[in-house]
């Protein structure tokens, strides 16, 4: 049953990947600016430029270029960087590891705060905790993360000197330094998520707590916190799973900004550099992997949903 569900999903993913990559591929080539010019400099002669374009395949129609790229990509060859000559797949996967650590921390952060705020505000409605939760719910949604990032860097790195302003240490290299380097970026990345999860979980908890089976739970002799823990939370988390999936994609996109502010060598930063340098093969690789990530997350979201809710059957 589950295996068939998996096969079916993979089957759906393929056309989606084709369409998104084609669109992205075309858009990238429409970016004004010429990689040949960027490589050779302003003084290059017209012949040299044309020769290089032909060598890079840039003189062919977009659809041909796409076909060429696609057939190579299927074989695992995403090409090489126009500038460093690095294999795109190597560069992208190294960066992906970094970004994944940052985003995972941001996700954990979002859920930790979201759960804490939502539950406390539901346990004591209209208490000061409830007001704080609601206040952060609005604040986290409203504050732009790059602004928050700059403020936090000024406060914690420049003034207090507690945390590094830039750079990144992998968790496998040095866990403590990892925490230090990832704290501010993931906080900035996760503040929006925390606010979203707080708001949604709060309202879905309130709704769930009014249902009949919660009354049944009380009638068994459970106290409020037991009712929430044993019967309320799992039911209330169902709609949040979808939000979390969307958030993940959202955060991947936001790394473009956050990784630039904190100089973290991740996918976001790579995307920005590739755009600035017109490093098309690299940019295509980055986008492909991001799209893949989002499709995988969607799939995982559906699986989690099915695991949480026995009424859903994998078909």
């Amino acid at each position: 049953m589950f295996f068939r569900f998996l096969l079916r999903r993979i089957f759906y993913v393929i056309p989606m990947l084709l369409i998104t990559t084609l669109i992205v591929f075309s858009l990238i080539l429409l970016i004004p600016g010429d990689p040949a010019l960027a490589l050779l400099g302003d003084n290059a002669t017209a012949e040299k430029l044309a020769a290089l374009r032909a060598q890079l395949g840039l003189d062919q129609p977009i659809i041909m270029q796409y076909w060429h790229w696609l057939t190579n990509a299927i074989q695992g060859d995403l090409g090489r960087s126009l500038f460093t000559g690095e294999y795109v797949s190597d560069a992208v996967f190294t960066r992906l590891g970094v970004t994944f650590q940052v985003v995972a921390m941001a996700m954990i952060f979002s859920f930790a705060f979201g759960l804490l705020f939502a539950i406390t505000s539901v346990i004591k409605p209209n208490s000061w905790m409830d007001y704080i939760a609601r206040f952060f719910g609005v604040l986290g949604t409203a504050i732009p993360n790059f602004w928050l990032a700059m403020i936090l860097v000024v406060l914690f790195s420049v003034h207090l000197g507690w945390l590094p302003a830039t750079g990144f240490t992998s968790i496998s290299d040095h866990p403590v330094d990892f925490m230090k380097s990832v704290l501010l970026p993931s906080f900035c990345l996760g503040s929006f998520g925390a606010a979203q999860i707080t708001r949604q979980l709060r309202s879905s908890l309130i709704e769930v707590l009014e249902s009949d089976y919660i009354r049944t739970a009380y009638s068994k002799g459970l106290l409020l916190w037991q009712v929430i823990w044993k019967h309320g939370l799992r039911n209330a988390l169902l709609p949040v799973v979808t939000t979390a999936g969307l958030l993940f994609g959202n955060m991947l996109g936001a790394t473009v900004v956050i990784e630039s502010v904190f100089a973290i060598p991740g996918m976001g930063q790579l995307a920005v550099h590739s755009i600035l340098q017109r490093d098309f093969p690299m940019l295509q690789g980055v986008v492909l992997i991001m799209v893949l990530m989002i499709l995988i997350i969607n799939f995982i979201t559906d699986v989690i949903y099915g695991v949480l809710d026995p009424r859903i059957e994998f078909e």
Partner: peptide, 21 residues
């Protein structure tokens, strides 16, 4: 300590009164 132990209750709609998960 009394609820569900010495006095308990059943309701009109058993589907909505049971936890679906």
């Amino acid at each position: 300590k009394i609820r569900g132990n010495e006095i308990s209750m059943i309701f009109q709609d058993p589907l909505s009164s049971l936890n679906p998960l």
